[in-house]
Nucleic acid binder design. Structure first.
Lengths: 276, 276
DNA sequence: CACCTTAGCGTACGGCGTACCCAGTAAAAG
DNA sequence: CTTTTACTGGGTACGCCGTACGCTAAGGTG
């Protein structure tokens, strides 16, 4: 009975949200804090960027800031919440995207393809810059100020296309899922190369002998009729390829939806509504 | 969310591959092994399925098998390699897909859409059945016998469509990236619900008060013009939506490629080559 | 038989997240 | 002013983790 059921360090949603949106509350009494939440989160992000998620421990973050380990717990309830904060910290749409956002005021429905492409590539670069994002098991997408801004921008790109709310969310989720998936593939592969010190070439070379005996077994005819260059597609080309496929698919969808609306009057179509 | 140890235990590629393809080598001498590799991997998978990746420790697996912790290290070099083996263990195309594979012998180029859809949905269900697959993230996709069989089947579906090797891989990677991405979203969300005991409704409810003040700020116009049902799309519908978009996009690509080939003779087209 | 390879595994080390508690500080109350 | 009180920094300790090391004993080989 001395211990509660070993309460694993889960993130307290309410607390994380409050910290993200309002920051810590101060009530005047007592000594002045030597640290700031921003500083802690920034140091943690810096550490994770430099040395990977495995190196991110409360002890290391504290050492980075020159304070005792337990001092961090005066600012953050636990490691889970710190990770939540780190995610939102780096998740804002970068300057590049903010600029594009302002430039396209009022051009609804015109350049959705370019904007979605920009969002996709930007998100991809985000994962590249902060590989640990893909290792953090984001419990759920916590909507912090930055995360929400990114979503808002993506939604803006879909304005004026006649899509309903559910359809807009579906389109964004499709794009985002693909980007996350392909970034995961590339980033984890790169991480593995760094951590093990084994390059991609060495890695594939290590598989060759066993692959050859597998080929001899005849169980994998299609794999072994591939040409040698099959796996050498550059990562950016792969991203571009998939992105184009998905945008094409969305375009087809837009065409179908428009045709359907045309056929049955302007206010039909499930969930389609111009404004709330 | 926890970050699973993720760290110091790099997996030895050569050793993992050898264990996957050849199994452990025995040299007759000494006492007979009380365990089998299969048994260990199976127990580990079972444990991870039941209690999550966070509960998967060498001590727990050993306890499950009724042996001492260090005995496992006679069979497996370390936890990293055990994870590699677990991944391949569950990654085989299930009976359902194997059946479809045999049924379509010789019908190349006809039902690629149905087959890719089946593969997508099957992969999605795989992640659903073994959520920890999406949390394991420390190595490159090791090609074990089962993994390779899945790839071979996917390649078979693209036979007879006039695609080159690099294009086939690109198509498969696009599909796989999307499936992995969306499964990640759904599975991690579900995991979080189980582990924190907070349902999806409670989760969104917790965000409402802060969202309302965010709305008042006027910084997120597009988000707050969404209708209330925007986020209530069922997971399967979301999967189906994205899958259809991607298959449409691939279909467009096939059409373009065919047209291009038609226009400039049978052996043109960047990267298209029948055999090496 | 003795020899020697190999299996099982007890112990120990250095790391982790964090609960608990105390000492010291600074603002508020008297 | 002094006293009170809320608060901060952080030392210590607990129970986990992966795994290196080295011992005992089993059982084919000579």
């Amino acid at each position: 009975m001395t211990n509660p059921p070993a309460g694993r360090h889960r993130s307290d949603i309410g607390r994380s949200l409050e910290l993200m949106w309002r920051g810590p509350e101060r009530s005047g009494r007592g000594p002045k804090p030597a640290l700031t939440l921003e500083g802690i989160v920034g140091a943690a992000v810096h550490l994770a960027d430099r040395e990977g998620l495995a190196a991110l421990s409360m002890r290391r973050v504290a050492a980075e800031l020159g304070v005792g380990t337990m001092s961090l717990y005066r600012y953050v309830p636990g490691k889970g919440e710190l990770l939540d904060l780190m995610v939102d910290h780096v998740s804002g749409p970068p300057a590049e995207v903010r600029a594009a956002r302002e430039q396209r005021e009022g051009r609804a429905g015109k350049d959705w393809r370019a904007v979605l492409q920009l969002i996709g590539e930007t998100t991809y670069r985000l994962y590249r810059a902060h590989p640990w994002l893909l290792q953090v098991n984001q419990s759920r997408p916590l909507l912090g100020p930055n995360t929400l801004l990114g979503l808002d921008f993506a939604l803006g790109a879909l304005d004026g296309l006649g899509l309903g709310s559910r359809e807009r969310i579906s389109v964004i989720m499709t794009l985002d899922s693909f980007i996350t998936g392909i970034a995961r593939q590339h980033v984890l592969s790169r991480l593995a190369a760094e951590e093990t010190g084994i390059s991609d070439e060495d890695f594939w070379a290590a598989q060759v002998p066993l692959m050859e005996s597998a080929m001899a077994s005849g169980a994998y005819p299609h794999v072994f009729s591939l040409t040698e260059d099959a796996f050498s597609v550059a990562e950016e080309d792969m991203l571009r390829f998939g992105l184009t496929r998905i945008l094409d698919g969305i375009e087809t969808f837009l065409g179908n939806a428009a045709a359907e609306r045309q056929a049955s009057g302007p206010e039909a179509g499930a969930g389609v509504r111009a404004r709330g």
